[in-house]
Design a protein around this nucleic acid. Structure first.
Lengths: 211, 211
DNA sequence: TTGAGTTCCGAATTGAATCCGAACAAGCAT
DNA sequence: ATGCTTGTTCGGATTCAATTCGGAACTCAA
């Protein structure tokens, strides 16, 4: 960002630019979305873009940040409810929430997320990763029996990458080879079975040790 | 591709263009890689690019095809060996192969794969999906006890998306939060535990039914 | 050897990203 | 209120890369 906004109206301008960018990218993809389009949609002139963003990349960066922040804000209030549930159900719920989130506003976010990697999206994922780790931690405190599961960090890493990308890809496909229900059930069982199996192994090994 | 190559030399040119594109993209990223750079590296003129590719996108498409084909070619000869192994070990092996593949030639492929999604990479994944499904099928024929696992299709879908993207992302990170060993162990256990758990459930339910 | 088809070239065109200096609006002191 | 300073917006000028085009150079079969 080339300059910090001092006055209220310029904050509104920055906001308008980011929202316009979402619309333009959803319509034409990130490569074909031009600064003129973004400026037109935002109702400002092209030059003004460069008062707040040093280049087009920076606008994409702000979009990524916004997307991640909105995702977190969407899940956050549901955390108390999620951690109370059975793990499989919690995961299914999250996936359904995430799908609804991607599809709101005529799939605005989904259409952008499809191309997200242009924008070095991964760099911005950290808050989501933190949120998920937080949920897992809280969940474990309420379900102490799950404390013996190994490799929680690796699991959340895999899950966040595999889960987000698989869902985004799936929703973008015209005729996917599996249904969304199969996909979400698969993701949930994959985690659920993993945990069950880890617990079974832990029980078995402690049994062996004590006998 | 604007024209089909008729003569031998033009096939070499097409090849040179694709290889040059890999180098240019690895160096500058897909957005900053210019047609001039690609032409220079390939040792041809800019205009010649357009004899074989209708635009830059098409070159990226050819890169994706090449990448997928090379990946399949790298795994294919190892299929007989893989299907003989225990599932967890087979997965670990595949991941190690894949890492080595990404890192050869000074990480040429890895550097390009990082940005792969610009190029609508997903469209080209189908051969990999087929290969993986083929491996699973052959594996099941040798290990008939695994036939009762449900949702094989969903599992390979999740695995191909989650696995490839998690590995590419992990290898691209400067200081990843987990090691490659933890990641690959996690991916392998995730699948392994899933299968084990499914088999346990299947055994249990058939037991219930017969009692 | 030759000419029809193929391949290659690089200057010219086009259009988008970015820069810049002038015009405009807001805040502030008098 | 009035003039001054600083923040904000504008849109044309500039720059640079993608793509086009007309013709030169090459290949190969007859």
């Amino acid at each position: 960002m080339a300059r910090k906004p001092r006055q209220a109206r310029s904050k509104a301008t920055v906001n308008a630019i980011v929202e316009a960018a979402f619309i333009a990218v959803a319509q034409h993809g990130p490569a074909a979305a031009t600064t003129r389009q973004i400026a037109d949609i935002a109702g400002i002139s092209v030059g003004s873009l460069y008062e707040y963003f040093s280049n087009k990349e920076a606008i994409f960066g702000a979009m990524s940040e916004r997307f991640v922040a909105d995702t977190v804000a969407m899940i956050q209030p549901r955390v108390p409810e999620l951690v109370r549930k059975d793990m499989r159900e919690a995961i299914l719920d999250m996936l359904v929430y995430f799908r609804a989130f991607l599809q709101e506003n005529d799939e605005l976010y989904l259409k952008c997320a499809r191309h997200a990697f242009t924008m070095d999206f991964e760099e911005y994922l950290e808050p989501v990763q933190r949120l998920l780790l937080d949920i897992v931690t809280q969940h474990m405190m309420r379900h102490p029996e799950t404390a013996r599961v190994r490799n929680i960090a690796a699991m959340t890493y895999i899950y966040i990458n595999g889960g987000i990308f698989a869902v985004v890809r799936h929703l973008s496909e015209q005729n996917p080879s599996i249904t969304f229900e199969e996909l979400s059930q698969g993701l949930s069982d994959m985690v659920g079975h993993y945990v069950d199996q880890e617990l079974a192994l832990a029980k078995q090994s402690s049994h062996n040790r004590s006998s």
